[in-house]
Amino acid sequence: MNKVLFFAHLRDAVGEEFLTVNASGKTVAELKAELSAKYNLPKMETIMTAINEEFASHDEVIRDGDEIAFIPPVSGG
């Protein structure tokens, strides 16, 4: 299984800090499209993705146990 973390406006949209899903074997793009449709997530084209706390590209394949995070454009500083 995979923990999927949401932040900022995505957390508001999903209504949860994280979901537990089975994303093993899917690409980042596939998982993103699936959750985007299911939760009607806004502006997903601007969202970066991290796997195990490191930025990942759209075609990276998720393995069982990976922690996924959807990263909206950051605004720290």
């Binding site: 900022a8 406006h9 601007t46 909206p72 950051v74 605004s75």
Partner: peptide, 30 residues
């Protein structure tokens, strides 16, 4: 670099509402 790659977000609270920055009209588009 912090403003490019560090996963930190700010939510602005104004007199007339609130919004996460980085994704709204009040700031830049990406």
């Amino acid at each position: 670099r912090i403003k490019e790659i560090v996963p930190i977000w700010k939510k602005e609270h104004w007199e007339d509402g609130e919004s996460w920055m980085g994704n709204q009209l009040e700031t830049v588009a990406y």
